[in-house]
Amino acid sequence: MADTRSSFHAQLQNLQDAIETMAVMVEQAIHRAVKALKDRDLALAQQVIDEDPAINQTELAIERECLRLIALQQPMAQDLRAVSTALKIITDLERMADHARDIAKIVLRMGGRPHVKPLIDIPRMAEVGQRMLRQAIDAYVRRDEAPARQLVELDDEVDHLYNQVFRELLTFMIQDPRLVQPATYLIFVGLHLERIADHATNLGEWAIYLITGQREELNP
């Protein structure tokens, strides 16, 4: 089949490549923020904070490109969905990066003091969140609904872990009021990770829209 708009379609491919790159930056930010927490590595936390503006710049560049393509190419059907999906995806990606940055800020505030308990569930939440991000982007890039649909289960797992973290830390605080501040910091971290998983689910919803043209809520 002849493609009469091959140069435009090459530009859509570039747009998709840029989103993949942005997703890698976001995944790295989440990974580093939680590693900084685990290792009490203030320098690494600072690095996550310093690199956040680059992610914001990437979002703006992709947004500009989307608006340029709409104005100059008047995309239709799957091409229109590709551009509108890109516009929505970058918003979720940027929010995820903000949560990673906020976790890094908490690490700085904790000032390298020892943790109130060994961290197990929080790193696990981060792992699942990163996996969700990779799967959503995979669904988007390969136009494959299956990895997007699996996000429901993973999101449930993150929610479950967060409840566990919350209840456990609450017990600590009740037993020893001196732990209220460090335990609250960890609850905030859990909350940020829980939000990251929600945004990854949104990404999956956009991937499904791109493929089917239908908006559906994965985790209503």
Binding site: M1, A2, D3, T4, R5, F8, H9, M76, A77, Q78
Partner: peptide, 10 residues
């Protein structure tokens, strides 16, 4: 239709 409106039809 998809191919025609997205210019993938020569």
């Amino acid at each position: 239709t998809e191919d025609y409106v997205t210019g993938r039809y020569g």
